[in-house]
């Protein structure tokens, strides 16, 4: 772990949480275009009107995002982002989907507290979660991320920015901010009256997922390791994701702030529904491969989650099958 002497903020690396113990190693990480579909045309509608912040109690504030693609109207604000106010400062739980989205979040923080933003957590590489980081640069916070986040941003950052610039004004997109403290396995942040525990995961939703637990309230911040209502999108490893879910379950959190969905949910029922989809996706894709179906023929044959009421199912499911197929065909 790197410590930034400039920040005056302290992040402790902790050794007691083992790194991904799923014993699997997927050497093949392929081109993933995007966490969201940018083929869609920009919405040239009215000015931005982001959803409001929800006070979910105990100093935790979450913007419950709509289940949409990034558009000019939502300014890329399509992921649940928010902040935790502690005695000694504020921790941002994902800075947002664009510079504009991050600036908006920062203004919402300033309405509620005069405390400094000390930590900005970037839960993974996807643009809807981390492109807002640049909005917080002049507060000189610690930017926290998974130890593989920097590499992922190197590989994809420009690509994401270019695609988002097709939708938003270029000035609203946001520069790529790299984490200045990386979490190898686990780490803790002390906000004075509360400890936030970080966990770096093995390949799951992406290859750089970082989750957090607000220890005092038992609130888990799984980010995109948990999708609620919106169909999960796979950009890492399907089998890895299922394995990392088991690690989260061992924490037995009472409630969770999913990366997409309601601002706060009861953890286990929400996770169970997601696991049902991911497991069916794995089972059906394996069956399709075993039956000798080509990728083309597997697409209509794998119907996991169909009719399950998932938002954006049509936009993402087939893509998930492609990801699952190219992972599982090498089993």
């Amino acid at each position: 772990m790197l410590l930034s002497p400039m920040s005056g903020n302290e992040v402790r690396a902790t050794g007691h949480v083992r790194q991904s113990g799923n014993g699997m190693c997927f050497t093949r990480r392929e081109a993933m275009a995007l966490g969201f579909c940018l083929c869609c045309l920009p919405d040239r509608g009215q000015a931005a009107r982001p959803s409001g912040i929800k006070d979910v109690g105990n100093g935790i504030f979450i913007r419950e995002a709509p289940h949409e693609e990034a558009t000019r109207r939502n300014r890329g604000g399509i992921a649940n982002i928010g902040f935790i106010i502690g005695r000694d400062g504020v921790l941002v739980t994902d800075p947002g989907g664009s510079l504009a989205d991050g600036r908006w979040l920062r203004s919402e923080i300033k309405i509620r507290t005069t405390k400094r933003v000390r930590y900005v957590v970037m839960s993974h590489v996807h643009p809807d979660h981390c492109l807002g980081a640049a909005a917080f640069g002049d507060e000189v916070p610690v930017f926290l991320g998974h130890h593989r986040l920097k590499n992922a941003l190197h590989a994809r950052g420009d690509f994401y920015r270019e695609r988002l610039a097709e939708v938003l004004e270029r000035d609203d997109v946001g520069e790529i901010i790299y984490p200045n403290q990386e979490v190898e396995h686990a780490a803790e942040v002390d906000l004075g009256d509360r400890i936030i525990r970080m966990m770096a995961h093995g390949r799951a939703h992406t290859d750089c997922d970082l989750t957090m637990l607000d220890v005092t309230t038992g609130t888990l911040f799984p980010s995109d390791l948990l999708f609620v209502d919106r169909v999960p999108s796979l950009d890492g490893s399907l089998l890895g994701w299922l394995a990392e879910v088991e690690r989260l379950r061992q924490i037995r959190p009472a409630r969770a702030v999913p990366g997409h969905g309601p601002a706060i949910v009861a953890f286990e029922p929400a996770m169970a529904k997601q696991v049902e989809y991911l497991t069916a996706l794995a089972d059906q894709t394996r069956q399709a491969i075993a039956r000798g179906l080509t990728l083309n023929d597997a697409l209509p044959a794998v119907t996991a989650g169909k009719g399950g009421g998932w938002a954006l199912y049509e936009a993402y499911h087939e893509r998930n099958v492609i990801q699952a197929y190219k992972e599982l065909e090498w089993e």
């Binding site: 993933m32 275009a33 940018l38 190197h154 690509f159 270019e162």
Partner: peptide, 13 residues
Amino acid sequence: KASGGCSAPSGPS
């Protein structure tokens, strides 16, 4: 209809 297929990275690194 597709966008950005050739510049999309081959892997995490």
